[in-house]
């Protein structure tokens, strides 16, 4: 029992250089989505509590990226109402856009009637008219 519950990795941490681990874990959640977190920080800074924000990213499939983008945005934009434009069964639900005050587009250009509020970190925040 001692052998099988011996957490070698945890035991080593106090005695090893932790900088590689710090770098690894700092980017673990957002691997493959570099800049997306910075983009959401920018969106948060340019919107207010209670705003509705639709999320548009290159991923079109729920389990293949859109869920990450939507969940991550929900966390980073807490206090705002985050609206998905892809459903869990992979349907594009542009109808949801009607509920949104803003559209946060990351690495994507949606041809809609729009006014750019802010752009940066690979995306732009547009206010719907």
């Amino acid at each position: 029992m001692v052998f099988f519950r011996f957490e070698t990795r945890l035991m080593e941490i106090p005695f090893t250089d932790r900088r590689p681990l710090v770098r690894y874990f700092a980017h673990l959640a957002d691997r493959g989505w570099e800049q997306y977190l910075d983009f959401l920080v920018g969106v948060r800074a340019h919107t207010a509590k209670g705003d509705s924000i639709a999320i548009m990213v290159p991923a079109r499939h729920w389990d293949d990226g859109y869920a990450y983008a939507f969940y991550r945005a929900s966390y980073m934009l807490a206090g705002r109402r985050v609206i998905p434009l892809v459903s869990p069964d992979d349907r594009i639900v542009m109808g949801n856009l009607r509920q949104a005050t803003y559209l946060a587009e990351w690495r994507h250009d949606l041809p809609v009637d729009q006014r750019i509020v802010w752009s940066g970190a690979g995306g732009k925040l547009v206010r719907r008219r």
Partner: peptide, 30 residues
């Protein structure tokens, strides 16, 4: 030693578990 390792592991970086920012942290922040 294991507790020290656990403490260091738990504080290496901002919390990055998917379920943290999709469930527990999301609710707390909201």
């Amino acid at each position: 030693t294991m507790l020290a390792g656990f403490g260091l592991f738990a504080t290496l970086a901002p919390l990055s578990e998917w379920d943290f920012w999709a469930i527990w942290g999301l609710k707390a922040r909201t």
